[in-house]
């Protein structure tokens, strides 16, 4: 009889070798009587086999996408996976700048979808982009106010009213940068009460009525299904946000990434983006 530890290890690594690559319960079951150290070692093996993103699994594409793409890319994932059932898209949503920092720090990702070109530019400059980046969508800025517009906000000029609670995105994220530019265009010095770390956080605080107004993307207002009200920014003051997408040099799954990128740029992908209020290039 072989020592129990060896037998357990065999059982432990069996699961990831299966064709579907899914760690089922049977594979992760650890016999109770075995020594604790063996159990810990087995568990560690299982964890690394199941949870790691940098594994050689050829069927996963990790997409780091800007917060404002949350809904559009969620739908994109579903549509893509039904068209390409062998590929599993995993979304990593965050502020574009935060995602950029992750990528520059070497976090494994296959695709980067940024809400502006400057963040993409930094990644390109670092030599982390495979091939060329592409602008796949445009967005416009809009004022978001809570339903009922308790602050009576009618335009950018209201952002100077001290009695209102005004939120913007932090300047380090694209929506903050755009928001500042829009206000500059309108010649308004805003009485800001908070600079939220990403557009979703800003939108949430407007939704629950804690803020009277904020500047977000048009697509964000559309995505809330009427839980915030949009107040248009005149074309003269507005700016376009260019969304840029690229496959990353360090991508563990370059092929899968290319397939996903092509899907985003395809007619089907464009239709999804348009549905969520994006302007197409």
């Amino acid at each position: 009889m072989s020592p129990p530890g060896v037998g357990e290890s065999d059982e432990g690594v069996r699961a990831p070798l299966r064709s579907n690559g899914v760690c089922d319960r049977e594979g992760s079951t650890v016999r109770r009587h075995q020594a604790i150290t063996v159990g810990v070692a087995t568990a560690a093996l299982l964890l690394s086999a199941c949870g790691g993103t940098g594994q050689s699994t050829s069927d996963e594409v990790l997409v780091s996408a800007a917060s404002s793409l949350t809904e559009a890319f969620a739908e994109m994932e579903i549509a893509f996976e039904s068209a390409n059932p062998e590929i599993d898209v995993v979304l990593n949503i965050g502020g574009s700048s935060a995602l950029r920092e992750q990528i520059l720090a070497g976090a494994p990702a296959d695709v980067f979808a940024s809400a502006n070109i400057s963040n993409m530019g930094l990644v390109v400059d670092a030599g982390d982009v495979e091939g060329e980046s592409a602008i796949f969508a445009r967005n416009r800025l809009e004022i978001a106010v809570p339903v009922g517009n308790p602050g009576g906000v009618t335009g950018l000029a209201d952002f100077a009213r001290d009695e209102l609670l005004i939120g913007l995105c932090a300047e380090s994220v694209p929506c903050g940068d755009y928001g500042q530019r829009v206000l500059q265009n309108a010649g308004v010095v805003p009485a800001v009460d908070t600079e939220e770390p990403n557009v979703r956080a800003l939108l949430t605080k407007i939704e629950v009525g804690e803020l009277d107004a904020g500047i977000v993307y048009e697509t964000d207002v559309a995505s809330t299904d009427g839980e915030v009200t949009g107040v248009e920014i005149p074309d003269g003051d507005n700016v376009h946000a260019d969304y840029s997408i690229a496959v990353l040099t360090e991508a563990p799954n370059v092929d899968g990434a290319a397939v996903f990128l092509a899907f985003v740029l395809s007619e089907e992908g464009r239709a999804i983006l348009a549905n969520h209020g994006f302007v197409l290039p």
Binding site: G167, A170, V192, D193, T194, E195, E196, P197, A201, K205
Partner: peptide
């Protein structure tokens, strides 16, 4: 803090 009080230099 960032969820409840927000983020503004000099204030929060």
């Amino acid at each position: 803090t960032i969820t409840f009080a927000g983020n503004l230099q000099g204030r929060t």
